[in-house]
Amino acid sequence: MTLTSYGPTAAKVAAEPPSAPPGAYLKHIFALAKRSLIKTIRTPEALIDVTLQPLIFLALFTYVFGGAIAGGSQHEYLQLLLPALLGQTIAMAGVALGQNLNADIEKGVFDRFRSLPIGRSVPLVGAVAADIVRYLILMVVTLGVGALMGFRIETNFISAVAGVALAIAFALCFCWISVWVGMKARTPGAVQGIMFMLVLPLSFGSNTFVDPSTMPGWLRGFVNVNPISQLGSAERGLLVGGPVATPLMWTLIWMAGLLVVFVPLALRAYKRRV
């Protein structure tokens, strides 16, 4: 090491530390989102849940169960399945976020962030913002492969873009559950376990894969209030036609509710995590 008397801290001690300039909060979020993306690029296997996983669901349900469920036409089933599957898989894609944050805290990286003069919520919001890229990848892969399998958008381009945007916006609200669990659970594995306990019933207790009219009454009640069902219906309306307004309204209400409940919970858990 070059150890001269001139160190890297020279000529500063008396200076008053500067306050954060305007716009700093957004810049900090951007810097931390970039960090998350670099990590994602360095570990491409971390993208399995937004690439292979939705495709497995798509292929499994279209080709294995589709014929039985839809009573014949796999194409018809694909038209029905894929829009709702976008909503279901994107909710599941948020699980990894909580796992990653949990691992970050265990490794001590967050201690560094917490000792810096940045907004308390910045590390969490930055990580959530970076997830937009993962969700976009999921959209492109699922819609792209879906198109190869014969899926066709029956509405129009703007409506389809709105459908993609709605799914991503929903995921950005839903993932705060994962962030909260990530702050509370002891290990990344536990985060995954807890989140799957939540996401799997929401996924299959929905109108995504099977027509709810075949289900018992008590389950239909659950399916109807399930946010994944509401999102799925809205996506169907936006991508292949049908009613949009009511499921969209309920989806937006769910999104607001998720934010109001889980953002404060996650921030509080983050603050208290030692």
Binding site: A31, R35, I38, K107, V109, V122
Partner: peptide
């Protein structure tokens, strides 16, 4: 508590940007 997935430069630039 360095970020293992970032390079030395990326680690320090990130802190600089946050400052």
């Amino acid at each position: 508590s360095v970020d293992e997935d970032l390079t030395g430069t990326q680690n320090l630039v990130l802190i600089g940007q946050l400052l």
